[in-house]
Design a protein around this nucleic acid. Sequence first.
RNA 1: GGCGCUAUCGUCAAGUGGUUAAGACACCGCCCUUUCACGGCGGGUUCGUGGGUUCAAAUCCCGCUAGCGUCACCA
Length: 490
Amino acid sequence: MKKIRTRFGFAPSPTGYMHIGNLRTALYAYLFAKSQDGDFILRIEDTDRARYVADAVEFIENTLAAAKIIPDEGPHHGGNFGPYVQSERMAIYKKYAEELVENGYAYRCFCVNHEDENTNDEEKKFGGYNRHCRDLDREELEANIVARKPYVIRQKMPLTGETTFFDVLHGNITIANSELEDQVLLKSDGMPTYNFANVIDDHLMGITHIIRGAEFITSTPKHVLLYKAFGWELPTFIHLAPVMGKSEDGTVSKLSKRHGATSFNDLVEMGYLPEAITNYVALLGWNPKTTNQEIFSMAELIEKFSLDGLSKSPAVFDYNKLDWMSGEYFKAMTDEEFAKAADKFFGELDENLASKKVYLSSLLKTRVAKLSEIPAMIKFLQEMPPFDAELFINKRNKVTVEKSIEIIKPALEMLEKVEDWTLDTLNEKIAAFTENSGLKTGTVMWPLRIAISGQKVTPGGVVEILYLLGREEGLKRLTDALDALSNVKQ
RNA sequence: GGCGCUAUCGUCAAGUGGUUAAGACACCGCCCUUUCACGGCGGGUUCGUGGGUUCAAAUCCCGCUAGCGUCACCA
């Protein structure tokens, strides 16, 4: 018995946008294929001319590459089952559609598409196509062809009985044939519909497993009927539950714009690491049963992945958890790695700060969930926020405006004598200063930190900030604060 | 509306007839602390509902409800 190689297809539309749910489907297909030592095939479903977006194929390929999902075959990945772009396969669909017509599984339909005619009639709304051309007599049919009337090819559904198919997640699913419409297979422009093309291509490309969203469950019987009409072997179906989003009012619905970022790219632009996104998405609807581990590399994901860990129910996309996971990735990075990843979020830094990016990274990496938080977090280093005396007053550390002056003044005098403006020296001097003052560390540090940062919350403490600011700017801020504080006092 | 899918903490989830119903995120408290983080410790909250089956049900069956999906010359 020959072992059939596992082959998974991923067939996105070139819309210039990769929804998280879509990416997850691709990821699961990839993980399963690789765990079986099988193939992951990228195919572009571009049969809807109206939706075509320029460069969208490259966009899809780049996105997959960023997510470390590498197709074995695809438009630009080679393979022996091409072309991998549906619009280049029109002759193939035509041929199979004709075969269906000849064998009585499909028919030509000359009815015009009245999509503009709006009808308020509820029955019509749910009625579907009325099958007018299903049994045209030969004369009328030929007259239409001679007259070159445009037509579509429709699938001839059985009027009775039911169709059952097996889904790995859901088991057997049965739908009455009477529920199935005589759907269009080949459009009047000669393009196939998804429902037709996907069957032809999956078969021709030797796809063994179809993994896709649950929204395709109801149309699967139509596909199954097509496989049967051609006498082809059925692939294994896996229908994934959708990825949901939670609105502010608490309602849950399919993840969409109103829930914020919905595409892989949106997330990357917000400063989440691709690895972290992939890791999080992998766990959104799948769990590795045998372990409580949550941080996985792609290699580990492949090793651990199995179908029985897939969840049947919808999963809500949770930014909290993504933030946490993202933070875990940042914390695991070296300062250099973080500096590199964060580079474009640092913005225009002055020469001094630019030279301290790596050190700055050591401060930032434990405080950031996404890189886009960086600009707001480091702004005070480049530009002193407006003076606010209120900030100096701190009950817990027993600091008042007056007390602040008492601390800042001698501290400034002491620091002015420090030439070696390094972390070690600064640390040592300030520790000694605190010691000599006889005050609690917090009491000394509070007003100093406020004076040089102008903010209640900062990444790092007095020593770190002083170092980052550099000697000149550090002393200047202390001086300015002292002046401003003195004015307040009188 | 017809048809279909789903139903364990706020969220991701383990669980497959007998468990103190794991774990993680979030939340709250404490510790650490130079603010915020990091790290450590602890805490609360969960089986949608009604019927069965069974000595025993989160687990099996049925109804209900709710959510989602689908009913295109879109995928």
